[in-house]
Design a protein around this nucleic acid. Structure first.
Lengths: 340, 340
DNA sequence: TTGTATGCGTTATCAT
DNA sequence: ATGATAACGCATACAA
């Protein structure tokens, strides 16, 4: 059917092993022989079978990526791009598995990727719990966490930003612009980045001597609609709250909040300032452009892939576990008003 | 290392072949034997090696997907999701290849996916030319085109919407809302969906007895910034043009156009009506919500995958080549004003 | 430097 | 219904 290594060998008058060598360790074969083999490959339009190669060498040059719910999701999108590029620069493929926001599916993901003999796994989802320990152990593959804290006992490196710090920074910025009544749209689930940002928000208030009002914090899951509803609730208490700014734990929720304000006849930033989080692609496309915190997606992608390559011994790197904090960046645009 | 079919066989007191059978053709093996084997598999936590399986059976249950430039791109995103879901429902994996907008890379894509022994290929990019013929022929794999016309000579089915018709529909809608001076932001490259939409726009004008003014058509590639600039050019000629509505060949460009209007102190839809194309996720998140043409992404994904499954003989379907037109849908939102 | 032989984990063919 | 045995296409230890 398709041309194999053997036919190339015959054509070049050498053994299959030699052909394999010019493919993998070209310098082990004499110049002239190599040339002949390469010529034969070209003539026959030979393309090595990646599957056979994977079976034989037990390495597929493929990284598995477990995402929580569709790389279509606003933000995993950007992250995926970062990981893809980093992988490509290391000559690696990436195989995506969508856990559909279910821990069980996420677990299946490990099995699935294991079956497909990926060389390493990047897990990026809201949470990884102790339940995953046995699965990961048995797999025996290097795993890194991305944008998620390690809730398992297995020591796994984690690449993330300092969410607490980021939350603090947002408050700090807002205060520097004269805001003193600041609300927040956070996430429900404990132990998530959203909660950490909330934590940073609280410590920010404290640091600047501002009162914390639990009414001023509304939660949502992540979506546009959640953001809308959270803002709606904030608005209902606005008589007491007197908010001048709201910090949303995600850009998508921020967009929902902005829409809600619009529907209530309020203008951003004139009547209410908004700060988002993520710096997704559309953040700069909306009116007003969204002031937000940029996550270093490509940097995170690069680092996590690089760590994996280190663990696989394909690159020299210290492969320590623990959390690697990468710097976030505050992006000032148009959605925050400076108060007198 | 990892547990293989042989160890399961030993444990169950049968041959490896039998284990393979309960995996693939369970009804060919006696109930009791099957039970024993399954028990053994469970006890040993056996997971079949997909790579070995692929090598032996010459089918990987994987579909290759060639995208033009990052599924991060606004719109391929939605399409990818459609294809992913359809694939999943057929128990297929999908391997993505990013051609980075280069025909050469796209060609490499076929080789790459071939090397990885995918069972079929979905090509979705701006263009497929005659240059691809030999490559596709040699691969010997079923290929379908998605959202792209077939410019090659090899008969390949294509799943698309009727872009000409869609362009016509937009004009028709605008006219029904009282607009008579309608501009367009189209695509540069000939033989693309963008050009077809332009064609529909022209025939729409003609049909309703409206004059066509080449000044009223500005081109861009696809991006937000392109849309912005195109609108800028339109505005410069607005004294002559007197446009009341602009049809953009993509939502992303429409967003750029809206921003441009905003920067020029114009309001949508009060001062200018805008219609986009694609119905990307953010179309309903911006202010005003974007009126647009929805492409049936999941339907397209489903159909193209289903065709492939037919070609692979895994499902009974007539596998004819030619273009399959799927219905687009006009989505009326807030960006078009009704004129008196 | 090159060739021979064997293995990777599974499926498929042919017996029994 | 089940078992031996030979592929699948390539990589690699070992020998030469």
């Amino acid at each position: 059917m398709r041309v194999t290594i053997r036919e190339v060998a015959k054509r070049a008058g050498v053994s299959a092993a030699t052909v394999s060598r010019v493919l993998n360790k070209p310098n082990l074969v004499e110049k002239e022989t190599r040339r002949r083999v390469q010529a034969a490959m070209k003539e026959l339009d030979f393309k090595p079978n990646a599957i056979a190669r994977g079976l034989s060498s037990r390495q597929t040059d493929t990284l598995g990526l477990i995402v929580p719910a569709g790389i279509t999701d606003f933000f995993f999108n950007e992250l995926y791009q970062g990981i893809r590029e980093a992988s490509q620069s290391h000559n690696m493929r990436v195989l995506v598995f969508d856990s559909e926001n279910s821990p069980e599916r996420a677990m299946e993901g490990f099995y699935f990727l294991g079956q497909h003999q990926v060389d390493g796994i990047i897990f990026t989802s809201k949470m990884i719990t102790e339940d995953f320990d046995p699965v990961i152990q048995r797999l025996g593959l290097p795993v890194v966490l991305v944008l998620a804290p390690n809730g398992a006992k297995t020591p796994i490196p984690s690449f993330d930003i300092d969410n607490v710090r980021a939350g603090f920074d947002v408050v700090s910025y807002l205060v520097s612009r004269g805001h003193r009544r600041i609300g927040m749209i956070a996430g429900k689930v404990p132990d998530t980045p959203w909660q950490q940002r909330l934590q940073g928000y609280e410590s920010g208030l404290k640091h600047f001597g501002l009162p914390f009002d639990s009414q001023a914090v509304q939660t949502g899951e992540f979506s546009f609609d959640d953001g809308y509803r959270a803002m709606q609730r904030l608005l209902e208490k606005q008589a007491d709250l007197q908010l001048t700014a709201v910090f949303s734990a995600s850009d998508e929720m921020a967009l929902g909040a902005m829409r809600c304000l619009y529907d209530n006849g309020l203008r951003v930033p004139d009547d209410m300032s908004i700060v988002g989080f993520d710096d997704v692609k559309v953040a700069r496309m909306v009116v007003p452009r969204l002031t937000t915190v940029a996550q270093p997606f490509s940097e995170i992608g690069a680092q996590s892939v690089h760590w994996l390559m280190g663990a696989l011994g394909r690159v020299i790197t210290p492969t320590e576990t623990g959390t690697y904090f990468l710097p976030h960046r505050f992006v000032e645009r148009e959605s925050v008003r400076t108060l007198v």
